[in-house]
Design a protein around this nucleic acid. Structure first.
Lengths: 117, 117
DNA sequence: CGTATGTTTCAACTAAGTTGGAAATATGGA
DNA sequence: TCCATATTTCCAACTTAGTTGAAACATACG
């Protein structure tokens, strides 16, 4: 990833409401969550949510599909991975000591959930 | 890390100028870079740079110390690690498959530099 | 059809971020 | 002390982001 798209993604996540939505979608997995359900859980107006979903979507962090009357939003894991990788590459280039602990955190997080990574 | 400080850090990084400065400092390591040198390399006015360094500093992403007439800025690796860990924990909770590749990227990045992580 | 439900778009407003010049502060050296 | 250098603070203008309600659009169902 380059500098510009990285700032677009970072600024999409740099908002409490959007970061919360994004976390919700990441945790929801491929099943995703309908816009209306997100709005109810987050207690935010539909139009505000829609604007914020649009920002996350343009940043490539989430995708959407229609299911009947609802629109289901899902996290885009590939692009999220790209952003994290960009930040980590950055780090490791000049400061390798930061990589070890991060790799460990990633592994531990997975093991704690009982997953093989 | 909690939601609020995470958004503060993310929004500090969500700016091309600040992200560039931050990368420069991360790559400079503990030696850091003087404010004036940053301004010259980035071709930005001293007052603009100062404002942006202040934002990064308040977000906890960088530190500063005085050296003669210059003020040397350095990346704060602990807090950077905290932010990345926060984003990765997020990810791994609902989507463990993302952790593996990330851990691998971290390791590879270190190995490429010839470091033992 | 007509109506209810789910979501987005629009326009207006408010709040926040960004910038550079001038002045202020701090340090070092003649 | 006086001046040059390094950086920050203050300020005013500008730009961008965020929120809201009302209206529009899309789908489902009787």
């Amino acid at each position: 990833m380059e500098l510009k798209p990285a700032t677009v993604s970072l600024s999409a996540l740099a908002h409490e409401g959007r970061l919360s939505v994004f976390r919700m979608l990441v945790q929801a997995g491929d099943a995703g969550v309908a816009a209306g359900d997100i709005a109810r859980q987050m207690e935010v107006s539909p139009s505000t949510l829609s604007a914020n979903l649009n920002i996350l979507s343009h940043a490539g962090l989430i995708d959407s599909r229609r299911d009947g009357r609802s629109i289901i939003y899902t996290a885009n894991y590939d692009n999220m991975r790209g952003l994290l990788a960009f930040l980590m590459e950055d780090c490791c280039g000049g400061a390798p000591e930061i990589c070890g602990p991060l790799a460990k955190i990633a592994s531990q997080s997975c093991e704690a959930e009982g997953h093989a990574c």
